[in-house]
Design a protein around this nucleic acid. Structure first.
Lengths: 335, 335
DNA sequence: TGCTACTATGGAACCAGTTCCAAGATTACG
DNA sequence: CGTAATCTTGGAACTGGTTCCATAGTAGCA
């Protein structure tokens, strides 16, 4: 049986409280006593029970992270930022991977039960009005990453502006027939993802500002993934009057577009310009032009915000907007 | 203030034990009483404190996962398998990302403090003899994934055989000048990674069996990563008598080799055959020939083993070896 | 009817820490 | 030297569950 704080107290010949004080680095212990206690701790190879500690103090030093499809490169990179910042602050992270809408709802609901963790970070999933209310009522500290919601705190980017940035890059190079490829309606609804839609809004806005004709058939939606995007892109490229450039709502989907152009023997960027979003690791390898967002940093900032909330300080401003930038590589060219 | 089990007992007009029994689905409660308790629970919107529960029962329903470089695609895929299996069994996972040897040692040591979790899964990091002893003494259930150690339990693959498989594939296609590209000595030492070395042993074994001359200059080592591999591959390919095929110890490193051949205007597979290891997601996209190992399944199996251990049943056999297979794609061809 | 066996229930004790109050020891200072 | 202020210290009470023992109630059976 492992030693308890009482065993230590007995061996050191001091009281319970004194041992607790030593453990918590309280200044209210004389050096001599402290030494005696530390010796006893070493002798008994005592290590305090974290569970008992959490139980009595009410702090778990743990944060829950709800991440949709955590194998997606962009999500992984955010998680790395989160882990790094949490670890630096002595916190652990519990990961919940959301791959179905049922799990999404369950996770958001469970978070409000405020138990095993001191707070939660939610990646990319936008809480609906009712859920926001639930979370607020429960009083759980929550930080949003890659999304925002009325009355909640977090970090995000301006996806609309990002979409504009991408499409303006294409317009500037003389493209007028520009396709868009984004997430399926079902996915957007089920998970309440917002970024694909916002990026599309930016696309529409940029086209509008340039007086380019909008063609509904140039906008395609499919389940997020390379192979789905490949099929959609093939459809786009086989239209009677195919687009000369395609803006994919994510780098992963842009990879599907590249595959499709390979399938159809189209050269990129000579016959087709392709631009993605996120600047995930492989984008550089592929020479993919894309809109870069600070993924790692989003995780770090999310943690800062959340730890602030846990400490009782609401961040100001409530929602930080991180900078994004266009990274021009080899998959886009003038017409 | 949240309601406690005592509030529920009072409202339902029953004893503490009875409420606890209802919560734990004990059959020793009459239907009428159960209903009364459930009503009280609903009325108070009571939800049991997980921490208190863990504290008093000694079970945390949580598992720690120690993962080196958890952004590497292969690791992420294993994590997904782990999360999926843990969630199916009502467990949560706490992730520790190891990116330095100091953290590796700290994590392995912390696990033995058996506290916040019921057990641990260790990915790819082989415990050293002293660490094995420490873990055994601490009595913490531990499952190893992608590695094995004397007296410990887990799942792995036969990396030596995998290396042979890869090299035989090249030999069969007439290649005799075959390079190998693996992890740096420093990395292997610091983290005690074994797979790169084992794959190299398979490489040596296959070459030996084929009476192909071994050339020390054909074997290069560098920090795991695409750009490092790219540099090493460039060195290999600029030798007076360059290899006609390269076996990279991982798909990520194989991508570096592909970059290097692009740099040097070498066509793959016409001028150079390239084979990787793991069959990560992008391998298919790149048409990379590789040795596939069941990553997702390794996570699942690891969880099965660990939960068995937690339940008191040592797995038989102690170490499972998962099947691997060669996936021939477009980056390898006959000379 | 009386005795046994089993079901249902209440609640004290326990898990291992933290917190805080009371009290003893020591120091400062007039 | 006495008194107040400050520093140390001990330990009871508390956190919110689970467990288990004692007991009341009930059914079964001769």
């Amino acid at each position: 049986m492992a030693a308890t704080i009482r065993d230590v107290a007995r061996l050191a010949g001091v009281g319970l409280g004194t041992v607790s004080r030593v453990l918590n680095d309280s200044p209210l212990v004389s050096p001599a006593t402290r030494t005696r206690v530390l010796d006893a701790i070493a002798e008994l190879r005592y290590s305090p029970s974290q569970i008992a500690r959490s139980f009595s103090s009410g702090k778990t030093l743990t944060v829950s992270v709800i991440a949709p499809f955590f194998t997606r490169p962009s999500v992984v990179e955010r998680l790395r930022g989160i882990e790094s910042a949490l670890h630096a602050n002595g916190y652990s992270l519990v990961v919940f991977n959301v791959e179905t809408s049922a799990r999404r709802d369950a996770c958001l609901h469970d978070v409000s039960r405020h138990d095993r963790s001191d707070g939660a970070l939610i990646i990319s999933l936008t809480p609906r009005a009712g859920e926001v209310q639930l979370l607020r009522d429960a009083g759980v500290p929550v930080g949003l990453i890659d999304t925002s919601a009325e009355g909640m705190y977090g970090v995000c980017i301006d996806d609309i502006y990002g979409g504009e940035l991408a499409v303006r890059h294409l317009l500037d190079r003389g493209h007028r027939r520009i396709g868009f490829l984004g997430d399926s309606e079902a996915e957007v609804q089920d998970f309440n993802f917002t970024s694909s839609r916002h990026r599309q809004l930016g696309y529409l806005k940029a086209l509008d500002a340039a007086d380019a004709t909008l063609r509904p058939e140039y906008q395609r939606y499919g389940v997020h993934g390379r192979s789905e995007a490949r099929l959609l892109a093939r459809e786009l490229l086989q239209l009677p009057e195919p687009p000369t450039a395609i803006f994919a709502a994510s780098d992963t989907q842009a990879m599907g577009v590249l595959e499709a152009s390979r399938d159809l023997q189209l050269r990129v960027p000579e016959d087709l310009s392709v631009i993605g979003f996120d600047d995930i690791d492989v984008a550089e390898y592929l020479g993919l032009t894309t809109v870069r967002q600070p993924l790692f940093m989003s995780g770090q900032r999310g943690v800062e915000i959340l730890l602030g909330l846990i400490g009782g300080e609401p961040p100001d401003p409530p929602s930080q907007v991180l900078p994004i930038e266009l990274v021009a590589r080899g998959t886009t060219a003038p017409m």
